[in-house]
Design a protein around this nucleic acid. Structure first.
Length: 280
DNA sequence: CACGAGACCTGTTCGC
DNA sequence: TGCGAACAGGTCTCGT
């Protein structure tokens, strides 16, 4: 579920609400939620630690504890909830961290894809990740160079977390549309100006989504507003907000993919056509 | 190296 | 109304 803007929003909320929280106990309700260590060791080791820092890397939430790092990946349906003790746990609770003062932090995850690591050094876990899209060190030229280093479809390359960390299905579709690039375009064939357009689109889309606190469709992730700003994702059959052509849905890399066949032609459109239609 | 299929999971929506 | 198929914000592994 959560992509970079949602994870960023979650981190900001956690930073405001649980810095300094002291963990008194842990309970694992679904074994596989814990990537490492095993539940018993996890419980023994996390007890007594407190939350010192909250950070994000790609789609990972990083809680810096007194002695370890608690690393969380929410995958498709995970959410982190902070709440006062209730008589019963809410549905789909997979992990409970009891906090001093009666609060507790829950990981709820219907599909059970989410993973949690407790480790003294998350470097190895995070090492494969590509650069942060919003990092100033990732210039348009550097991005173009990275694109040229592969011969892959843009959609699947942008979803690859080792290429760029944090994009998911929504924001890849939105970024490609904003850049006017077809999801199946070969990364190696993208020109310098197209790469710059894509680079700028990704950053604009992510920044706008963060300002909106992410995208909310249902109860899985709440509080976001960016769903009102989507131009292609989930809009199959509806008119393109730029040119009124119906948005198409197809499958690329086994993922539902939404795009405008007019604004995002696979074959390079003749400049005259694109210009006349997109200029006000 | 690039890509598709299948796995991991449950819940919701769609079509007949 | 009921029921199975399709689909979902992600990632890993395997075979070609």
């Amino acid at each position: 579920m959560p992509e970079l803007p949602e994870v960023e929003t979650i981190c900001r909320r956690l930073r405001a609400s649980c810095l300094g929280a002291h963990i008194t106990d842990a309970r694992v309700l679904w074994r596989r939620t814990l990537a490492t260590p095993a539940p018993q060791r996890f419980r023994a080791r996390i007890r007594g630690q407190s939350v010192r820092t909250v950070d994000r890397r790609g789609k990972f939430v990083l809680l810096g504890l007194s002695r370890d790092w608690l690393v969380i990946h929410l995958r498709m349906s995970g959410r982190i909830c902070l709440e006062r003790n209730r008589p019963t746990l809410p549905a789909h609770t997979r992990l409970v961290l009891r906090l001093r003062g009666g609060q507790r932090m829950l990981l709820r995850d219907p599909r059970k894809f989410g993973r949690v690591w407790l480790t003294s050094d998350p470097a190895e876990l995070l090492a494969p990740l590509g650069p942060e899209p919003l990092d100033a060190r990732l210039t348009a030229d550097a991005f173009h160079a990275r694109l040229s280093g592969h011969r892959r479809q843009l959609k699947t390359l942008l979803l690859d977390q080792t290429f760029l960390a944090g994009l998911g299905n929504i924001y890849v579709d939105e970024s490609l549309h904003r850049a006017g690039l077809h999801p199946r375009r070969r990364s190696s064939a993208v020109t310098g100006s197209e790469a710059r357009r894509l680079w700028r689109s990704i950053r604009q889309v992510l920044r706008a989504a963060i300002r909106c606190n992410g995208t909310s469709f249902d109860a899985v992730y709440g509080g976001g507003d960016f769903q009102r700003c989507l131009w292609v994702y989930g809009r199959a059959g509806q008119p393109c907000r730029r040119c009124r052509t119906p948005i198409l849905r197809t499958v690329v890399g086994q993922r539902g993919t939404h795009y405008c066949p007019h604004c995002q032609p696979l074959a390079p459109a003749r400049a005259t056509q694109r210009r006349t239609r997109s200029q006000p």
